[in-house]
Each structure stands twice: as structure tokens, then as C-alpha cells.
């Protein structure tokens, strides 16, 4: 039972780290606010500068909370996909799931008649955000279903990855056609969206996104026993009385909802989904989903908060797009996974 204790220790360590990074993320930014004042604002007390209150409450706090949601959601999506496909290279952005979400978002705009941008849709308020979430999740589910169908016929991990990249490309092409017929200023906004941003989620949307992400995470957590069974492969899972089709459906729903909603609001954020499960597995030394799911949530939170802090470029007026930072940190992890496994074609975890 020594192991459970050490798992708990790692989880608490990660939680403390996440808390520190959350604090740092709220503290740092292009406007320098003294530490004491930040604490006062967070505690709801009077401050010297009313602008600081606005910056903390309306900008930095929602952004840091969004970072937590993104970190948890994308990481759990990636973890589920890696187990479901038994493929260490599976992840929401790698297999084109985020592209599917993008397609869903684009479909909303096409149907609305005007080629409105994601920012315009955000102005619709809560009902608009539901519409986007539903469509983006459906788009994700569409791509995920296609890949699941193909995965049933292909046992080679690398080939599946290539198929995923191709489906992602097809999806992006469809979006490009739509872009081609759009106005230049809307194009610019779309390109801004593809950079990814944690800052665009305002208060009401944050409530909606929080609810949806918690729902997706719960779906994932209740399937943790089935996910553990799937580690041994579908035949063993079946022989232990698990209903594979039901499990697959729940995981598909959870992954689509998490990836869809996050991508709709924050743009396609790469590499978190694929990298965090690997970091967590090697950190905790287990494949048990009951521990891994909380583990990837915390690791994901820490990593996205760190990416956001780096993106702020503390001390400067510049802000880098979050997607650039996650790619810079995440891609080397993927390379490490590829190099450290000589039997990538068929192995898992």
C-alpha cells in the first residue's frame, strides 16, 4: 500500500504547484500590480487603483480559471484517446478532433448567413455560447467517430496517426474554403482564433464552459474502471464483462464535449492533450485511470498556467499567442515519446 501513499503525495504536490502557478498567473501581466494589492483585491477589499480591480477581476482571474479548464479538459481528452486507441500518439489536436470542433464553429457561422467570426458569436451571450459548444462538440464527435471506424480496421499506430492528420487536413480545407469567401477583416479574426487565446472567455461564458467541462470530466471519471479494463485490449475487456460499445460511446461523448467546448472558446490549443498524459504517467508511474485522471487534471493545469505565464512575457508589454507557447513546450515531449519507444508501432503506455 506504499504506492497509494506516494500517489497521494504526488497529487498533493501537484495541487500545491497548481495553486502557486494560479497565483503567479493572476499576479503577473503587462500591467504591474503590487503583490499586496492583488491579495487585497482577491480578498474583496478596497484598493488604491480602481483599474487594478478591473484588470484582476475581469481579465486575469477569468483567464487563469480558463487555463485550469483548458488544462483539465484537453489533458483528460488526450488520456482517454490514448487508452481508447491504445496509441501513445493519440491526442485531440493530433487526430484532427480540434479541427472537427473548428468545423462545427464554422458551420454555425455559415448557417447564420453572415460569415461572422468567433468573436461576433461570443457577443450573442449565453445562448450563443451554448450553440457554439453544441456545434463544436458535434464537429469533434464527427471526426472522432470517423477515426474510431478506421481504427477498427488498422492496427498500426503510426498509420492511424497519418489517417488522423489527413482527416484533420480535410476538415481544415473545408474551413479554408469558407475562409476564402470571407472578408479580410474576418479572416484576420479567424487567424487570431487559430493562435488560441485564454483571454476571450468572459464571465457568463466562463460559467457555461465550467459547467460543460465538469460534465465532461465526470463522464470520464465514471468510465475510469472501464478505461482500466481497456488497457488490456478489447478482448480482455469484453471477457471481464465490460460493454465495449457503451464505454466507447461515453468516452467519445466526453472527449467531444471537452475538446469541442474548449476549442470553441479558446481556439485550437495544441500538444497539451498529447503531452500531459505522458508526463503524468512517467511522473506517477502508473496507468491506473482512477489516479491518472486527477493526475492529468493537475499536471494539465500546471502546464497551461505555466504556458500562460510565459505567454505574458512578464515585465514586457508583449503577449505571445498561447498556442505558440504550448507547441514550444509540448512538441519536445512528443519527440521524447517517439525516441524513447522503439516499438511505437504496436505498443501502448
Amino acid at each position: 500500500m506504499r504506492q497509494t501513499v506516494s500517489h497521494k503525495t504526488i497529487l498533493s504536490g501537484l495541487a500545491v504547484l497548481a495553486l502557486c502557478f494560479f497565483g503567479l498567473d493572476v499576479m503577473l501581466g503587462s500591467v504591474q500590480i503590487p503583490f499586496g494589492q492583488v491579495v487585497r483585491i482577491l480578498a474583496g477589499q478596497e484598493t488604491d487603483n480602481i483599474a487594478w480591480v478591473f484588470i484582476i477581476e475581469k481579465i486575469r482571474l477569468p483567464k487563469a480559471l480558463t487555463a485550469i479548464l483548458v488544462g483539465c479538459g484537453l489533458s483528460v481528452s488526450g488520456l482517454q484517446m490514448q487508452t481508447l486507441f491504445r496509441n501513445p500518439l493519440a491526442g485531440p489536436s493530433e487526430l484532427g478532433i480540434t479541427a472537427g470542433a473548428g468545423l462545427g464553429v464554422a458551420a454555425v457561422m455559415l448557417a447564420s448567413g453572415s460569415s461572422a467570426s468567433i468573436y461576433a458569436i461570443r457577443q450573442l451571450g449565453v445562448s450563443g455560447s451554448w450553440l457554439i459548444i453544441v456545434m463544436a462538440s458535434l464537429g469533434s464527435a464527427l471526426v472522432l467517430s470517423i477515426i474510431l471506424l478506421i481504427a477498427g480496421r488498422i492496427r498500426d499506430n503510426v498509420i492511424l496517426l497519418i489517417v488522423g492528420v489527413m482527416i484533420g487536413t480535410i476538415t481544415l480545407s473545408v474551413i479554408s474554403i469558407w475562409q476564402y469567401f470571407s472578408q479580410p477583416e474576418q479572416l484576420q479574426e479567424y487567424i487570431m482564433w487559430t493562435f488560441g487565446s485564454l483571454g476571450g472567455v468572459t464571465q457568463h461564458h466562463l460559467y457555461v464552459l465550467t459547467g460543460v467541462v465538469i460534465f465532461g470530466l465526470s463522464l470520464s471519471f465514471i468510465s475510469s474502471k472501464a478505461l482500466n479494463g481497456l488497457l488490456l485490449g478489447e478482448n480482455y475487456a469484453k471477457s471481464m464483462g465490460l460493454t465495449i460499445s457503451k464505454t466507447r460511446l461515453i468516452i467519445l461523448a466526453s472527449t467531444s464535449i471537452l475538446t469541442g467546448s474548449i476549442t470553441a472558446f479558446c481556439g485550437p490549443i495544441g500538444f497539451i492533450g498529447i503531452a500531459v498524459p505522458h508526463i503524468t504517467r512517467s511522473l506517477m508511474g502508473t496507468s491506473d485511470h482512477r489516479v491518472l485522471i486527477p493526475g492529468v487534471c493537475l499536471t494539465g493545469t500546471v502546464l497551461v498556467l505555466l504556458c500562460d505565464i510565459i505567454a505574458q512575457m512578464p515585465g514586457t508589454q508583449t503577449v505571445l499567442p498561447i498556442n505558440v507557447v504550448t507547441s514550444l513546450l509540448g512538441a519536445p515531449v512528443v519527440i521524447w515519446v517517439i525516441i524513447s519507444r522503439n516499438n511505437l508501432r504496436s505498443s501502448f503506455s
Binding site: L232, M240, G241, F348, S349
Partner: peptide, 16 residues
């Protein structure tokens, strides 16, 4: 291929 699972964890999966 479940490199990250210990022997005991694999056997415990039999109790699913």
C-alpha cells in the same frame, strides 16, 4: 502492452 501497470495491478483487473 501495459508497461506502466504493475503485476499486482494487472491481476487486480481480474476483479472488475
Amino acid at each position: 502492452e501495459v508497461g506502466n501497470l504493475s503485476v499486482q495491478e494487472v491481476v487486480a483487473l481480474g476483479r472488475i
